[in-house]
Simulated assay, not measured.
Amino acid sequence: MGLGHPVDALHRALTSAGVHGMEVIVPSYGSVEVVDAVRQVGGVPVFADIDADTFCLDPAAVEAVVTPRTAAVVPVHQFGHRADMGRISRLAQRWGLAVVEHVEQESSSTETAMRQANAAYLTQRLTDVVTPRIRPGAGHTFLQYVVRVPGNGRPDRDAFARTLRARGVRCRVPVQTPVHRMPLFRRDVWLPETERAANECLALPVDAGMTRRELHRVAAGCNALGGLLQPA
């Protein structure tokens, strides 16, 4: 299916794809509304792991969970980074699956351009976090600017976030709990990249209206913590 679907159109797209009683492959990383939509139309969510760089569904992980009962796959363009639609579409064609894209949020081209400029500023200046990686040709609108905090996972990431907030830098954990570990949707699956992202990632502000002074404060606050949370 061509363009991405916002949340309020997912039900129609999934119904049209004929997923009732069938399996639908979805990401577990930050996609509660997608999983909920699949269940509401009678589909069975099947979780696949994400790509470590883009946080979008890993096409190889998708193919690994395809069964004769699989009807569709829902690639989510995570944080504004486009999923690998070329590989997923070829995979879907090979297995006879419907593809229902999901876009987290729409924004104007002006807002997108400003966020992209702010993201580029941070990427050039941040030194002690792993900055966003963009798959060649994919494009990224930076609905969220998500970095990885090096160290020992969640304890170090959370300590890093607390210190940043104390210094006046707005930041948030983009995904606290993957969907497959939530009580309502729990599945006994092992998704290593999903778990690692949930433990290491932090979203820094790149809002369209931010000034260079504010962006400098973000970069300086992060860089001042460099080395403090590194593993021994």
Results as ranks from 00 to 15, higher is better:
Y145K: 08
M85F: 14
Y121F: 15
L204K: 03
M182G: 00
H77V: 01
A232R: 11
A72K: 06
R172E: 11
P205W: 06
V62H: 00
V62P: 01
L184T: 14
L3R: 10
N118E: 05
Q176R: 13
R90M: 12
A198W: 06
N223Q: 08
G30K: 07
A98K: 01
A72N: 08
C56M: 09
V38Y: 10
G151F: 14
H140Q: 12
V26L: 02
A17N: 05
P45A: 13
R165C: 07
V149T: 14
P231S: 11
L228V: 13
N223H: 01
N199C: 09
F55C: 02
L215Q: 06
R115M: 12
L91N: 10
A166Y: 00
R87S: 13
D128Y: 14
V44G: 00
A113H: 06
V65C: 02
R154E: 15
M85D: 13
V66A: 10
D188I: 04
I25G: 10
D158Y: 08
A83G: 11
V99I: 04
A113K: 06
D53R: 13
A120Y: 01
S109Y: 03
F55Y: 15
A71P: 07
A61M: 07
L143Q: 12
V38L: 05
V74I: 12
E106S: 11
S31I: 01
E104C: 02
R125M: 05
G4V: 10
T141P: 00
P155M: 10
A71V: 01
L204S: 04
G137D: 09
